[in-house]
Design a protein around this nucleic acid. Sequence first.
DNA 1: CCAAAAGTGTTTGCTCTACACCCATGG
DNA 2: CCATGGGTGTAGAGCAAACACTTTTGG
Lengths: 227, 227
Amino acid sequence: MEYTYDHPRPALTVDIVIFTLRENRLQALLIQRKDDPFRGMWALPGGFVHMDESLEDAALREMEEETGLKEAYLEQLYTYGAPERDPRGRVVTVAYFALIPADAPFRREGGSDAAQAQWCTVSELPPLAFDHTEIAAYALRRLRYKLEYSAVGFELLPDEFTLTELQYTYEIILGEKLDKRNFRRRILEANIIEPTPQRRTGEGRPARLYRYQPDAVAEVKARRLFP
Amino acid sequence: MEYTYDHPRPALTVDIVIFTLRENRLQALLIQRKDDPFRGMWALPGGFVHMDESLEDAALREMEEETGLKEAYLEQLYTYGAPERDPRGRVVTVAYFALIPADAPFRREGGSDAAQAQWCTVSELPPLAFDHTEIAAYALRRLRYKLEYSAVGFELLPDEFTLTELQYTYEIILGEKLDKRNFRRRILEANIIEPTPQRRTGEGRPARLYRYQPDAVAEVKARRLFP
DNA sequence: CCAAAAGTGTTTGCTCTACACCCATGG
DNA sequence: CCATGGGTGTAGAGCAAACACTTTTGG
């Protein structure tokens, strides 16, 4: 089959599930639609792919428009192309998920078009427009899955963090409690973080600060990191 | 960002990495290009997404055009959208991989447009047009990975098969020898195949025939099936 | 000195791996 | 009866899970 160029073409968009940790919850960013269809409903941030940008650049641009943040962990999820997924016509969307650190300087009160934007705890998402509920559910599944065999959890934390903070992050995302000694042993033996000279002081004994070892990408581990 | 409909749109295609077992090798189907760019080079089968069909339907349609086969295990891989991946203009492609059984009635001498089609052992692929080398490499990585934690290997075998045939399949795809007793124990304990009353007779002791248990979807196993 | 959080090892069970011989049939 | 591939069990090692107390600081 040879490519030709005079056919009608589907519209191509990107949609992004932007995760962060806020208020001890895993939250995702939602945008309230101000036009039909689905006016007033919540939806994932997203928009057109321009002719001169890659899909990933499109996702980053949309993310910056909504959050003011230029950098984040970004990963392509899946491409949704059911013919009837958008009532206005044929729209194929490439879904991404992004992780932004808890301390990132997020610009609130939303996007370039002043649409209402809001963080929402992932376990309490409202009904979403289009097939975005399905996309968000898949993003969460993927995040949990990746957490088990790769080092993606660090992307949600500041540059420096304590082991307890890291463990909380894992527990929040996985939705279960982890054993402190097993957690520390495994995360340290995996050689993906290194101690810094600093300690974080507060109530109780000061905690050593660690940082992510960027060279040890710790991509696909043979075994999942946590059970 | 609101969707609008008057922008120029990228062209949208699907490309498929069709795997099968032939001559004790894992092979993929390639098409020889008969037009520029890349005239004469080999490429993955693929083509336009029509306005009224889903992405998966487009992939199945292209596969039927090239092979005559209507059904196969089909899985979306990744969407490639670098602006310069096609020298003729902006083309975004959704890549799929397909598994067809060794005994499937494959229609040779190719596609609807009589392009030259040929099976090629995956470890000896020629240079491919566009970014298809990258796509094929990713498909192989994904196939190997899935083999380890899901029951996808059966899709390459006939409905009924012996345990030895199944083990050969795994060994061919993974590229390593497996222990017979460990293989049999684990595949049987996983409860994803069931014995049939038949045996396959030939040289040596007749072998019991098994069939895939379609209800036991055996989706994501907690542990990989084989090391 | 008390409250609060940080930090630290060992034992037990289970799973994975390595390994060699007998069985059933056809010619 | 012999050649060929089919079929079977066990012992040892390594890994994962469960589990409780001591240490360091601030108030």
